[in-house]
């Protein structure tokens, strides 16, 4: 994996968060945004303008899949679902994050 610049890392972070959210089952864009906000206690503010392009990119890569379903409002909603390839990708992203955060923590929390 090529070394990541902080930007790319954030980019990848959003991807990873989306994928992680979808492990709980298929969901639509708003629900994904909401879930991230709530789970991270709004420490990570999802830029809503970048959420949807990210979803489309993930779809193109084949990491998520989409179908039409019904939302809580009874309206037609595009539901995203994690694919097998997405699951693998999430595992890889998670491992990267772990290495990264462990490394940073070691430095920041050392005496």
């Amino acid at each position: 994996m090529p070394p990541k610049t902080p930007n790319a890392l954030l980019h990848g972070a959003l991807d990873a968060l989306i994928l992680k959210t979808l492990t709980k089952g298929p969901n639509h864009g708003y629900a994904i945004a909401k879930f991230i906000e709530e789970t991270t206690e709004e420490a990570v503010l999802v830029e809503e303008g970048s959420l949807y392009p990210a979803l489309y990119r993930l779809e193109r890569r084949g990491w998520v899949d989409a179908e039409w379903g019904t939302s809580e409002l009874g309206r037609r909603a595009k539901l995203y679902r994690l694919t097998e390839a997405g699951r693998h990708q999430l595992a890889a992203e998670t491992a990267t994050w772990r290495r990264f955060s462990t490394g940073i923590s070691k430095v920041l929390f050392s005496r």
């Binding site: 708003y30 949807y52 309206r75």
Partner: peptide, 17 residues
């Protein structure tokens, strides 16, 4: 249409919230 519907749903749900 796909994009319009998707965004409209998002806006509507946020508005309700």
């Amino acid at each position: 249409q796909e994009i319009d519907e998707e965004l409209e749903l998002h806006i509507e749900m946020r508005t309700r919230e």
